[in-house]
Write a protein that binds this DNA or RNA. Structure first.
Lengths: 78, 78, 78, 78
DNA sequence: GTGGTCTAGACCACT
DNA sequence: GTGGTCTAGACCACC
């Protein structure tokens, strides 16, 4: 649980918020700039956290639009 | 001399500052974000102005580094 | 073939060198610092290129040791 | 005063420069790479020296940003 | 002396 | 005004 890097910790925090149902399907997660301010990390670190969540299928990132909770499809585990 | 569009006017202003020798070779011109604030224009306007200056060979834009006064080389127009 | 980003172009170049058999199994590919100098890009760009090649299974990166051509295993396509 | 190890001697030198007020609050101390060159020592030695100064509360090290003179707070020893 | 993470801030492309 | 790429250079961990 106690991830060793900043981006893993941030990803874990976001994962919890997602699992708690904080974000609705059409509602974007916080922007990179917002997370940057909120967590006091660089944008790069925010992007790595989001990238990690995208790679594991938790979120979907859309250029120019934002990050969204992934919707279940035929491969969905949940 | 009185350009008709916002980006042409901004380009003209920057051209004057360059010709006045305000920027040293290794010193970048103001960033897009800075010009946006200083002139109260949109980022698109700033980008068009810089693009215009680059197209005419006045400046060189380096991705991730900034805009710089073009150095005279064999292709120099001036 | 003409990739649009710097890291994709660098990855393509490295892929060709690998396929041409330039690197032996135990011989590391050029270090990040070396590629940085050779190609005039930032270390970040070099890392993204190597990361891309690692993700596609072309190379294996070992912390503190270097990048190596991936050895065929049971999942190998070639 | 004559420290027995290389890193203690380097730390002592840096401590003197700090106490002489050579570094302003927002100005980072020399980077590890720079000290390495200037003093002709290994990176490990530099890192140990900085670690020692951080442990005694003289400096604060910020990952990716540099080493800074510690600002007095409620926990200040001096 | 290598790769790994991080900061800070620039320009680029898309909605 | 969002995400995408890139530069430059710092500290960290490993071989």
């Amino acid at each position: 649980m106690s991830a060793t890097t900043a981006y893993e910790r941030l990803a874990a925090t976001l994962r919890e918020r997602i699992e708690a149902g904080e974000f609705q399907p059409a509602m974007p997660l916080p922007s990179e700039a917002r997370l940057q301010e909120e967590h006091g990390v660089s944008r790069n670190t925010v992007r790595r956290a989001y990238r990690l969540l995208e790679d594991e299928g938790t979120i979907v990132i859309r250029h120019g639009a934002g990050a969204f909770v992934a919707q279940p499809d035929s491969d969905a585990t949940a």
